[in-house]
Simulated scan of single mutants.
Amino acid sequence: MPKSLSLRAGLGNVLFWSVISAAFIGPGTVTTCAMAGSRFGLQLLWALTFSTFGTIILQEAAARVTIASGLSLGEILTQTYGSRIRWIMIALAGAVTLGCAAYEAGNILGAMSGLVLLTTGSSQLITLLIGLLCIVLLWRGSTKLIANVLGLIVFLMGGAFAYVALSVSPGPQPVLHAMVSPSLPPNSLVLIIGLIGTTIVPYNLFLGSGIGQNQSLSEMRWGITLAVLIGGLTSMSILVAGTLVTGDFSFQQIEQALSYRLGNWAGALFAFGLFAAGFTSCLTAPLAAAVTTKSLLGWSEHSLSYKAVWLLVILFGLTFGLLGVKPVPVIVLAQAANGLLLPVVTVFLLIAVNNKTILPAQYRNSIWQNILMLIVVIVTTFLGLRNLWLITQ
């Protein structure tokens, strides 16, 4: 008999799965979405609609595989292909860790920027406190505790951005039309790729698979769908808020534009949202690196190697954050690695959810699920290769 899902349990589930939203809404997402709104108005909202539903489809598939088999996505790849792809596993683990380490610096700097806008405090002291708090929370070792903390912050962040967006929105009809009407304005392709790529994040599939064990299908689907929808609507709210910004683009410009048009409260809410986006990603980037590496290489969650991965990611980001230096060469390398990682992971996932030797019939993809997932795989493959091509130019 399927497990019933009470309202209280359902809300707790959404809170738990908000770790996925926390992972893809970081300072990079705030920048990309706000810049899209600043340059193209509402015309690129459709890209966030596509990426939100694409994320739900892929995350549900990754978690379903784990629930049905009891194995994480990385363990399934190892069991299916064995030593034949050992070098691919090591390369994937290295690419994810490198990418997370590079982006951790941006996450810490983003969280610090939000608090500086709010408090005008010492940037170095705030950076150090953020790094130390992340280490304390991750050292506790409870994935559920971290997920719940992140969930609360994501809800607050989403509310802050949504309130600002509603205050500047031209009305529901133009927004809804832009959400479902694809358009390609001149010189918008890079931002479209950025909007989709910043939402459909490859390491999130390993993160969702790694934390999704011991749940029923109904719990998982309810939690993932609502949590990712909240994340997608938050990203859309940031884009709408970005339509107020003209001229040079920076966090300070957004804060000043909102404060000038709506009052100081709007600038303060944006600053809090920026801090929340940075802080949640400060936690999820090292956590995702450790969970993915554990999944791919077969480590224990309590092993020193597992803890060493997330600790190194935080220390890397903290060092660059304290120096105030953005690790541009490493970020470029990480983008290239993630550009290849995204299509590889999505193709592996599509094969896994149709594997008759691992999954019972009721857990395998239906024809419609395969069609929807194949569309997402094709688009993410294009994005990954396109992203790699742009970087190499």
Rank of each mutant, 00 (worst) to 15 (best):
L5C: 08
S6M: 07
A9F: 05
A9Q: 15
A9V: 11
L11W: 14
F16D: 07
A23S: 15
V30L: 10
W46M: 12
F50C: 09
I56S: 00
A61S: 15
T66W: 02
I67Y: 12
L71V: 08
G74R: 00
L77N: 03
Q79S: 15
I88V: 15
I88K: 03
L92P: 08
G94S: 04
G94H: 06
A95I: 11
V96Q: 10
A105M: 03
G106S: 01
G106I: 09
L109P: 01
L118A: 02
L125Q: 04
G131W: 03
L133Y: 01
R140C: 02
I146T: 13
I153M: 15
L156F: 13
F161E: 08
V164W: 02
L166R: 00
P170H: 04
M179S: 13
S181V: 10
S181Q: 06
F206R: 02
L207E: 02
I211E: 03
Q213L: 11
N214E: 10
N214S: 13
S218D: 05
L233K: 03
V245R: 13
T246H: 15
G247Q: 09
Q256L: 10
W265G: 11
F279D: 08
P286C: 08
V291R: 14
T292V: 06
G298K: 01
S300F: 05
W310A: 12
I314S: 01
F316S: 09
V325T: 10
P327Q: 07
P327T: 11
Q335M: 01
G339F: 11
I358P: 01
A361Y: 09
N365V: 01
N370G: 06
M373G: 15
L374I: 07
I378T: 01
T380W: 03
F382E: 08
L390C: 00
